[in-house]
Write a protein that binds this DNA or RNA. Structure first.
Length: 392
RNA sequence: GCUGGGUUCGCAUAGCGGCAAUUGCUUGUGGCUGUAGACCACACGGUCGAAAGGCCUUCGGGGGUUCGAGUCCCUCACCCAGCA
């Protein structure tokens, strides 16, 4: 569907499904697997594009729902599209708003007259959102989501899907899958006749934790004319084991040669698992969110499975710790600052705290995935994986 | 010296006869995976209990009134303000 979009697998791991590839977009090439930092509102929270470049980020993930509400896709279109607007000038991908059907689905808002209403209502036609900003009504349909994404102008755009929460019974998930498939066809139809910028389109697989639905959805999406495939409906409340199983129930039914993005996964142990299953890209808010909460990722032996590869710099334990922010990391933050200093910044609620910790966390994941790419190329992926996962 | 105000769980506050006692901060613990998140939840005198809940000790010191006192009265100490 897109002339600007190519994906080539360069090397496959012998023992797992992990692979190294190159994705070509109008805004540049991307080495895969890659970690995709989330920049919901056309900014990766606290980090400038210059820093993202320095870190080695390759793709930034924006959000249709948020950008539609503010500043509006017309503004971003006029300012040259998402990448230019945020001065990133490199590859971007936009989420469709489908995730907000889930994340805002349980929430309510109190209107000025005191009435409490749900933020989301799903109909056959589409989804009605109440803006979390001002309570105003916004109708999202598959066509509308794609229309907005066309104006936002990201290199990769996503189908509008319904992402059911966990736990949901099989019948509800089946309905969500059917709706997602129906919407997918509408997205494709609209996209094909309006894709003036040559944006690449990704269908989304749903199915929750149900193997039959995962298979059915994977096969359905695979049959459609899509540039690449995203896997959604995970990390919505289920356990890690169920998340991994859902992926195992999905990946075998997807065409090997296509670029695959996993939506919303990105804890350290998960990264080894999903890349070993053949995921080429994944986005996650965790490094920037944790960055604002004072939690930094750490590599073995300091970071291990037991502490989930995380240190909480808020702890008084670090008050006088002169050591680097994390041991063994060569990012600017770890090289230049002590834990005691970051601890102080967090205690004092200084903005720099959030920036430095976010910088480190995004760097950390970006470089972890870089190590994974190198290991795959050298046929040492399993060794790298076990050195991390078996750490204690 | 006089007059008025004040002394409450680390800090700051509420409390005006039924109180182990408000709220904010701090502290501690837990949570966060396509971002309504620089966030959220819980705990924070001691002790027993799985829990419901029980028991003990607390609101500057001492004394008093009262069935019952951070709460009212007397007195002492210290702090603040105004007048001398």
């Amino acid at each position: 569907m897109s002339n600007n979009f190519f994906f080539k697998i360069l090397h496959k791991d012998k023992k797992t499904k992990a692979r190294v590839g190159k994705l070509t977009t109008a805004h540049g090439d991307i080495n895969t697997p890659t970690f995709t930092p989330v920049g919901t509102q056309a900014t990766v929270k606290t980090l400038s594009p210059f820093e993202l470049k320095e870190i080695g980020a390759q793709l930034v993930f924006g959000n249709t729902y948020h950008l539609h509400l503010r500043p509006g896709e017309e503004v971003i279109d006029k300012l040259g599209g998402l990448a230019k607007f945020m001065s990133w000038n490199s590859p971007t991908i936009t989420d469709s708003g489908g995730f907000q059907v889930f994340s805002l689905g349980q929430k309510t808002i109190t209107l000025e007259d005191g009435e409490e209403v749900g933020l989301v209502g799903i109909t056959g036609k589409g989804v009605q959102f109440r803006s979390h900003l001002d309570g105003s009504k916004h109708m999202f349909t598959p066509e509308k989501s794609i229309e907005i994404q066309h104006k936002l102008g990201a290199d990769l755009i996503l189908a509008f899907d319904q992402c059911p929460a966990y736990p949901s019974n099989e019948e509800d998930v089946r309905k969500a899958v059917e709706r997602t498939h129906d919407w997918l066809l509408r997205c494709i139809s609209y996209h094909k006749s309006n894709n003036k910028k040559g944006q690449a389109f990704l269908g989304i697989v749903q199915g929750g934790v149900y193997a039959n639905l995962r298979k059915q959805s994977a096969e359905f999406v695979s049959r459609q004319d899509v540039d690449a495939i995203a896997i959604g409906g995970v990390a919505v409340g289920e356990s890690k084991d169920l998340m991994r199983k859902a992926l195992l129930d999905t990946m075998p039914y997807l065409p090997e040669e296509k670029f695959k993005h996993l939506l919303g996964i990105g804890e350290v142990d998960d990264i080894f698992d999903i890349t070993s299953q053949g995921i080429d890209s994944f986005d996650c808010v965790i490094p920037t969110r944790f960055g604002r909460y004072g939690i930094v990722f750490a590599s073995p032996p300091e970071g291990n499975r037991k502490n989930k590869f995380r240190l909480d710099l808020n702890k008084t334990f670090y008050k006088t710790d002169a050591g680097p922010v994390t041991k063994g990391c060569d990012c600017k933050v770890c090289v230049n600052y002590s834990r005691a200093y970051l601890h102080h910044l967090f205690k004092a609620n200084e903005i720099l705290a959030y920036r430095l910790a976010s910088y480190h966390n995004v760097y950390f994941l970006t470089h972890l995935v870089k190590q994974i790419r190198e290991a795959i190329l050298e046929d040492k992926f399993e060794d790298l994986k076990s050195s991390w996962i078996n750490s204690r």
